[in-house]
């Protein structure tokens, strides 16, 4: 199945173990490797504090932490399921704490950001079947199969 994705490099992490949102962000920034600058992780942690990204879907809460384009070398995306839910705060309502099970962290340069890369990820995540398949996947290959090849 082809899906419209804003990037062609996509990494998967299944069952990430972490205690806090900052731990999740740092671990996933590491997975993005040379796609991001050394400053990306802390910039994303700071942005999440300032503008939380947790979204309470009916079946699972999803977070979309990210950093500004100046911390990105080249576009990429990491999709992670968490071994145990981790607390992120809710987008637009920082006092609301969500137990997040899925994290999608894009590294977008100004070009993809201008092309509404985040909006296309948000649209993608509205697919309940995709959310379920990503959560249920027992391997990273299964997560990749659920998401499908970039269109």
């Amino acid at each position: 199945m082809k899906r419209e994705l804003p990037v062609s490099h996509i990494y998967f992490v299944r069952g990430l173990t972490a205690k806090t949102d900052a731990e999740v962000i740092r671990a996933l920034a590491g997975r993005l490797g040379s796609h991001v600058k050394a400053s990306f992780a802390e910039a994303a942690v700071a942005r999440e504090k300032r503008s939380p990204t947790g979204l309470p879907f009916p079946d699972v809460a999803v977070a979309l932490p990210h950093a500004e384009p100046e911390h990105v070398e080249s576009p990429a995306l990491v999709v992670a399921s968490l071994e145990k839910p981790v607390r992120f705060r809710q987008m637009g309502s920082p006092k609301v704490v969500l137990e997040v099970g899925l994290v999608v962290m894009p590294a977008l340069t100004a070009k993809e950001q201008a092309a509404a890369g985040l909006a296309s990820l948000l649209t993608l995540l509205q697919d309940v079947e995709l959310r379920r398949a990503l959560l249920a996947a027992e391997t990273e290959a299964a997560m990749q199969a659920a998401l499908g090849e970039p269109a």
Partner: peptide, 11 residues
Amino acid sequence: ACGTAVATSTV
């Protein structure tokens, strides 16, 4: 409206 006028408000 959204925080940055880029992502969520587009959707």
